[in-house]
Design a protein around this nucleic acid. Structure first.
Lengths: 220, 220
DNA sequence: ATTGTTATTGACACATGCTCAACAACAATG
DNA sequence: CATTGTTGTTGAGCATGTGTCAATAACAAT
């Protein structure tokens, strides 16, 4: 099996962000390509296209065309459209989870949380529509993908618990998870002309601690 | 073939939460029907089917089959699949917006909010999957439907502002809107075995007021 | 040069959204 | 009762899109 040192199941090397893609990967080179390169190229193209278009509006013909290959080849790399889509979402999710490269361990909990909020806002601002399409409305109803997105959110919770220095109890986790949805919604429906960014960060920071305090009162 | 004669005694009995249609509408097959009855019947069937299945997995053939009519007739009543889908979502949304119809004017704001929370929880509990499919992940990426769902949420905000006796400012509205997302997420990911219902209602009530207070401090 | 591997493709089968022209049931008219 | 008009209803057909299969072309190793 293993021929040229490259393992097929392990192509996680691509740190493709939701907004920026390696330009080379998109070039339509009709020629023969290595399996790994082809796969990552296809995912990158899907990532790019699905940022502005819902899944059921995207024909695999288009992806194939952009890659300069036939539709059949796409099915050689991904068993179905859903699988292809799932892979795209998975990649997008990775870049979200990795996004917040935060803060000094010396900072106070409040400052750490603040940093996370700012990081998240930055991430969303980079590609509002992309985020909305891929993470928020990206499930397309597919249970497998729903599971995926759910997993991404679940992965996020401990980061915040950690930053805020909270102990992990069911109510607190529930509260944080809910608050993340709140953060998402606010970040997406936020209009900078009505509420300034600083105001927003203040609001969200206060909101966070108020929320966890409501879940596990620290004493009044 | 398989035409008119087939009886559909086995129509999913799932909760009536999201649907408020006369049960008769689903039964009668084949025969000639008044336009209004046919329309509502079709929407009811769509409502039923879409509670457990994503939009792009639902073939109009199936809807037509359940109604005992041809696919062509469906297109006579709805110009496109998207329009049909939109109508279904619209109907589901109405029953959500209408759901909480109460609140004694004499109650304290806290009690009113509590009631709203309980009402929402009831609503979601009646058909968890239906809610998730139709309101949360129901957009399917269609911008028109996204607009619709967004509108439903927008309609909801004033109700809560009103119940809590809050003045409508941009930050407060933003906060409430975000909190509604939080409520939704928590209601959907809540596990009664880990957090009791009373505990949850307490948590949410406290969370609500903490949230709006973070947006528009009342103390200082 | 031969052989084996695999990236790649064109043709085909099948499902599904959507259109068109015709048909059938029913109400209103003389 | 016959005629006419309205409208609920349908089957055949087009267009697009997913997924399959067998065959081919490029490359590596013997």
């Amino acid at each position: 099996m293993s021929s040229t040192g490259t393992d097929r199941s392990q192509q996680t090397k691509s740190g493709v962000a939701v907004s920026s893609v390696a330009p080379d990967s998109l070039k339509s080179s009709g020629g023969r390509m290595s399996a790994d390169d082809r796969r990552t190229q296809l995912v990158a193209i899907g990532l790019d296209l699905l940022k502005t278009r819902p899944i059921h509006d995207l024909a695999l013909d288009e992806v194939a065309a952009q890659a300069g290959i036939s539709r059949t080849l796409l099915f050689h790399y991904f068993p179905s459209k859903r699988e292809f889509y799932a892979e795209v979402i998975r990649t997008a999710g990775q870049s979200l989870v990795r996004a917040p490269a935060f803060a000094d361990a010396d900072d106070t909990p409040e400052r750490k949380v603040r940093r996370l909020i700012e990081g998240f806002l930055n991430f969303v601002e980079q590609s509002r529509d992309g985020y909305r399409s891929l993470i928020r409305n990206g499930s397309g109803g597919d249970p497998e993908v729903m599971e995926l997105i759910d997993g991404i959110r679940t992965q996020l919770v401990p980061r915040w618990l950690d930053a805020a220095g909270l102990t992990d109890t069911p109510p607190v986790r529930l509260a944080v998870r809910g608050w993340l949805a709140c953060l998402e919604e606010i970040a997406l429906s936020w209009d900078p002309q009505q509420v300034s960014r600083d105001e927003l960060v203040d609001l969200l920071t206060a909101s966070f601690f108020a929320q966890v305090d409501a879940a596990a009162p620290t004493g009044s």
